[in-house]
Write a protein that binds this DNA or RNA. Structure first.
Length: 256
DNA sequence: ATGCCCCCGTCCCGGGGA
């Protein structure tokens, strides 16, 4: 089973690229972030026409997540548990083919320090609690998405330039590392130790052409999922298309 | 030190992104 994660930066603006990606057969499950549309306006037909199932959790203009899959999606959870007052659509879970998957659009947190950074850290606390709870079922779990965390300096083209940013701050990295302490594996890093890998390049200042990227899209695997990991990769092709998202897909394969 | 670029909304600017 191939599971991909892609921050598409608008489900509507990226319809063509998403359809091409589904039809190309590069994934069996696609975890989507930044759909930026209300559920009533979500482009369901695109997925129907491709023969895929899709569930989504959105809001007007900002955030929004979705899960698309060839196989049926069951036991869907909408929103990250732990705060009834949080109205930002940044999290969804489902079970597909015996694997529990979550699509994650973690808050950016800038400017830091400040209330947005506090929200990011609180959100990460809730994510870690949920990640811990998911381990109890002892089934494969894949937590994937735009974590808005640059785990190490190797994951950034210009560490000094990013010093103090919410994506590199010690508090953000510490909260991210807690997933590892719980037993989750960073699949891309595990498959490519010591290698420079990026998943996001800013639209501005020719970042893509200069390869000024950062690695902020992650595939985190429970032990049961890590045991089945065959390969994890960054697919840089979609970032080079016309009118691309600023993120490119990351994906992994689990053996059956 | 700031903007570069891109998306959304009821919209020709401003907020947000990372």
């Amino acid at each position: 089973m191939r599971i991909a994660s892609w921050n598409v930066n608008s489900a509507k603006a990226r319809q063509g690229h998403i359809l091409d990606y589904l039809k190309a057969g590069r994934a069996d499950v696609l975890l989507i972030q930044e759909t930026k549309t209300q559920d009533v306006n979500f482009p369901v037909d695109l997925y129907d026409d491709a023969g895929w199932n899709v569930v989504f959790h959105g809001q007007k203009s900002y955030n929004g997540v979705a899960i698309a899959a060839r196989q049926p999606l069951t036991d869907v959870v909408y929103g990250l548990p732990g705060d009834y007052e949080d109205e930002q659509a940044r999290y969804m879970e489902a079970t597909v083919g015996g694997v529990r998957v979550a699509t994650i659009y973690l808050p950016n947190g800038n400017p830091a320090p400040g209330p947005k950074f506090d929200y990011k850290l609180a959100w990460m606390g809730r994510l870690n609690a949920r990640a811990k709870a998911l381990l109890q079922d002892e089934i494969p779990v894949v937590l994937a998405g735009d974590f808005n965390v640059i785990p190490q300096d190797i994951d950034c083209y210009d560490p000094p330039g990013w010093e103090g940013d919410a994506l590199t701050r010690a508090e953000s990295r510490a909260a991210f590392n807690r997933l590892s302490f719980l037993g989750y594996t960073d699949a891309l890093r595990a498959c490519h130790p010591g290698q420079v890998l990026y998943s996001y390049w800013d639209y501005q200042a020719g970042a893509w052409q200069k390869d000024n990227g950062v690695r902020i899209d992650h595939l985190m695997l429970s032990p049961e999922a890590a045991d089945r990991l065959v390969v994890a990769e960054v697919d840089k092709v979609p970032r080079g298309l016309e009118k691309p998202s600023d993120h490119t897909p990351v994906w992994l394969e689990l053996r059956e």
